[in-house]
Design a binder for these strands. Structure first.
Length: 244
DNA sequence: AATGCTGACAACCGCCAAGGA
DNA sequence: GTCCTTGGCGGTTGTCAGCAT
């Protein structure tokens, strides 16, 4: 396929939008809608490419856009959803009314990635010390960590790598890791069925649910703790623990 | 006051999938 | 089935304000 010439070569304007351009775009869309983005700038009298107009409208000019700082709750939601969905910014944005994928992506790269890194590191070091003392009680039950994602401290890249390596060592295809389905999200995490269905549609189904019944392998057990703990964060509150 | 650095945010680029001709 | 257009997405870059030196 032949790529369309870029804006510059066609004599179209690039860079920041002026208030006048914004005004023209807004009034045109309010009047005519945006059926065809490619044709829109010509019809509206803008020296911009359609793609640029679309982006400006979606990320900045749309009337339903919520401006201003992200609330603590929104940040937590982003962290939780990112844990589930990865870099699927549009899917994350769909669950945050008034926020755009671009905005969320920016916030992630500038604030939350750092915060989360710090948090994971602090939890990693805490957990390492917990493990070295005693991870399970007399009945072989794990003492469940109920922590808030705003609890942040400092971190190093190496601790993140350690966690990744640890995950790679686990055989997720084993019998201890049956597949996640919709019922998991609603029943185990007590989410409304509607939410569970939506999340299940988006979730990475290569991820597996660890069951710890009768698990002897400490490595598997260890990784599964990570898994359940991540889900506690996702759910926003503490669900009933699985039978460890 | 001048300069350099950093973080935040807006905008662009390149790729992909869907759909129509 | 192929070609082309279009919209959408995620990654990346550019710009600018605020801060430190």
């Amino acid at each position: 396929m032949v790529r369309a010439p870029c804006c510059e070569k066609m004599g179209l304007k690039k860079g920041p939008w002026s208030p006048e351009e914004d005004q023209i775009l807004v009034s045109y869309i309010n009047k005519h809608g945006h059926g065809n983005w490619r044709a829109l700038p010509k019809q509206a009298g803008l020296l911009r490419c359609g793609k640029s107009c679309r982006l400006r409208w979606i990320n900045y000019l749309r009337p339903d856009i919520k401006r201003g700082d992200f609330t603590k709750q929104e940040e937590d939601t982003i962290i939780n959803l990112h844990e589930m969905l990865g870099n699927r910014w549009s899917a994350i944005a769909a669950r945050l009314p008034g926020r755009t994928d671009n905005e969320i992506k920016n916030v992630w790269h500038t604030h939350l990635k750092k915060k989360l890194k710090n948090y994971v590191s602090s939890q990693d070091s805490k957990r390492q010390s917990m493990i070295s003392i005693s991870q399970y009680d007399d009945n072989n039950n794990v003492s469940s960590p109920q922590r808030c994602s705003s609890e942040m401290s400092s971190v190093t890249d190496s601790s993140m790598e350690k966690i990744e390596v640890k995950k790679e060592e686990i055989d997720y295809s084993s019998e201890y890791f049956p597949a996640i389905d919709e019922s998991f999200w609603s029943e185990e995490l007590h989410l409304p069925k509607e939410d569970a269905r939506e999340i299940n549609e988006d979730v990475d189904h290569n991820a597996q649910l660890p069951l710890l019944e009768s698990v002897e392998d400490s490595k598997v057990k260890d990784s599964s703790m990570d898994f359940w703990y991540n889900l506690f964060i996702r759910a926003g509150d503490m669900p009933d623990l699985p039978d460890f």
